[in-house]
Amino acid sequence: MHDDPVVRIVAKVLIPSIMLFAFYVQFHGDFGPGGGFQAGVIFASAFILHAIIFGLNRTRHVWAFRPNLAVLCVGVLLYGGTGILGMLGGGNFLNYNVLGDTPQAGQHLGILLVELGVGMSVAASMVMLFFAFAGRATHNRFLSSKERNDE
């Protein structure tokens, strides 16, 4: 199935659209349903689809382990950092009112940053979970047949 040109081409069309949709969900969360959690999961599913179709090794080549770990940590730090920024501005931890010129502008900025942190963290952890589980698969079901022959 992995070597089927139809599957490969459909995946190539789908993966960028999934990523774009994830960004839409991420930044449209203020206005409609969605937010960091959903966007992160959708963004991660693009990498998972890539791994299922093209094999885990090629996905690791596209998106390596270390940057993924960095994004995971930066997401949490961005969330906590936004909270501390509120403290530096004279408010309580995670009080966004002081971040902007008006309380509302501060809230907008704070929510944007916090949701971005959530999205980064969730996407990276989902990719990490999938890599960890699929990478240990004894049958190498997630490798394409060519890679299986190489091993």
């Binding site: 206005f31 949490v76 909270g83 809230q107 916090v114």
Partner: peptide
Amino acid sequence: EIGIPNIVTAILASYRGYDTLGEVIVIF
């Protein structure tokens, strides 16, 4: 107070920001 149309996001990210921070740390 918040000024965004989606009240759910306002609650999750601002009013209950501390809980959401906890959730992110759970996933982390």
